[in-house]
Amino acid sequence: MIERIVIAGFGGQGIMFLGKLIAWAAMRENKFVSFLPAYGAEVRGGTSHCAIVISDKEIASPAFDEIDTLIAMNSPSVLKFIPKLKNGSKLFINASMVNNTPKIKGVKVRLLKFTDIASGLGNARTANMVALGAYLASKKLLSLKNILKLLPEAFKNNKKLQVLNEQAIKAGMNLIK
């Protein structure tokens, strides 16, 4: 098993946080995992992305050219990373921010309104967690239980934020039927 994930979007959408949370959960499940953030000039201009590899054996490279899962939180991310999607890969698009729906051969595309759903729950900034929920339900690689265990530490025991983010993750899971 090897899962190569790219998460991309605007600065402020919690891209890095989501990536680290996934990596963290994978670590707690005793999987091999690497997390590689975009850095330097790459994160100027308001966009950011990160790459995560989860595997059941040692990871040779945290950087990769072929993507198994892309979570694209805005339009530029869709355009930038579509060419790297593998045959049989999954693409989660934040439909709240992306208008055109690409059709790509061999790629399972899910258009989901992460930001709208997060706003409905009370905070648009939890769109990343809605996306996480959708990913968890769709890919079934990491367990919700383990993710939830990380939230107290991730939010430094801020109960209000924990509850809000937990709701967002569950709302995201409900999007996948």
């Binding site: 990596a23 670590m27 690497s34 997390f35 590689l36 953030p37 850095y39 990871i59 945290p62």
Partner: peptide
């Protein structure tokens, strides 16, 4: 190298 510096691992 930059890869080692930037990447996170357990």
């Amino acid at each position: 190298d930059a890869m080692l510096g930037q990447m996170m691992e357990p």
